[in-house]
């Protein structure tokens, strides 16, 4: 059994977020360094066919954040994306940004996720964003953290070839039926096949009631998978598995459907059209329930280092540069 690897989130921040943050900073936050709520989204991992080489190109594992995420009444995510909530802490100076106790902040966020596991609404993909806005130079320094619980012994995949294609497990007809019953904003859900061949879904926290009559070997956990890598599921699965292990420690093996088909392939398209993956994920027998596993998840920058990223919005915010570009 091979250890399962997970694709970490990469943040994609719309310039609108920085515009909105600047506005908040000037009008509302002022010198406050309290955390503010932000909602971000991730969609199913996308793969496109390169028109010239004919090869599949994966789009990675993206979490998109935009300015709308600050505004409860403006936030209008597409129906088939999952919503991740998070907290933003904006520091007043670059020194405070540098010297902030990142370990403590991270562990605080991880604790929040862990605490939510005992409620009906587990926060699978909560994130932390620390920022410093250099409003005079239109430069924004930022660092995302996506805390995910990692067991001491890695999750393993039962299938010998790693993740299998969902089509080979379910078949086209069943996948189409599953697509019909997917909840709106499906981050994670329980899935079972009814006697009449239809499918039903339920939130994760309903595990015991929903799967009461269902034999263990056909219970399926579905989640919206932001990863496009055929062999590694996306980051949210780590917390989903940790949650399930916390909820039902006796079930050490889970059938996982990594849903990646936000657009259902049209009938008659090539056989490889379905992108969803399937795996039976097994916990290590040494795992101990009830103890919070350690968490990882600071985002690496473009150079692959554990360091913040920077967005330079001079070209779209600086009045001088805007005037220069005008013809």
């Amino acid at each position: 059994m091979a250890a399962l690897q997970f694709s970490p989130f990469t943040s994609q921040v719309s310039p609108q977020l920085w515009h909105q943050l600047s506005k908040l900073k000037i009008d509302v936050l002022k010198l406050s360094q309290d955390s503010i709520d932000l909602k971000a989204t991730y969609g199913a991992g996308r793969t496109i066919v390169d028109r010239e080489s004919g090869k599949d190109i994966g789009m990675g594992c993206m979490l998109s954040a935009s300015g709308d995420g600050f505004l409860k009444d403006r936030f209008a995510p597409a129906a088939n994306v999952a919503i991740a909530s998070g907290a933003v802490i904006n520091y007043n100076t670059i020194e405070e940004f540098k010297d902030s106790n990142k370990k403590a902040l991270f562990s605080q966020t991880a604790d929040q996720i862990w605490a939510s596991f005992d409620t009906d609404e587990p926060q699978i993909s909560r994130f932390l964003l620390i920022t410093f806005a250099d409003l005079k130079k239109y430069k924004f320094f930022y660092w995302f953290a996506f805390p995910a619980f990692v067991p001491a012994d890695a999750w393993t995949v039962k299938e010998s070839g790693g993740l299998a294609s969902a089509e080979s497990v379910f078949g086209t007809e069943k996948l189409e039926k599953i697509a019909d019953v997917l909840p709106a904003h499906p981050s994670a859900f329980l899935l079972k096949e009814c006697e009449n061949g239809t499918f039903e879904t339920a939130p994760l926290s309903k595990y015991a009631a929903f799967f009461k009559e269902v034999p263990e070997d056909v219970r399926t956990i579905g989640f919206l998978d932001p990863s496009s890598d055929p062999q590694s599921p996306g980051w949210p699965l780590l917390n989903i598995l940790a949650y399930l292990f916390h909820l039902t420690p006796t079930h050490k093996s889970h059938r996982v459907l990594a849903w990646r088909d936000s657009v259902v392939p049209a009938a008659g398209s090539p056989a490889s059209a379905w992108k969803s993956r399937f795996a039976t994920v097994v916990a290590s027998p040494n795992s101990v329930p009830g103890v919070r596993p350690s968490a990882v998840g600071w985002e690496r920058n473009a150079q692959g280092k554990l360091a913040p990223r920077m967005a330079d919005l001079g070209s779209s915010m600086d009045p001088l540069q805007l005037a220069e570009q005008a013809c």
Partner: peptide
């Protein structure tokens, strides 16, 4: 072992 492709520069 947990993280796939963390170093996009390589």
């Amino acid at each position: 072992n947990i993280v796939a492709s963390v170093k996009p520069t390589q």
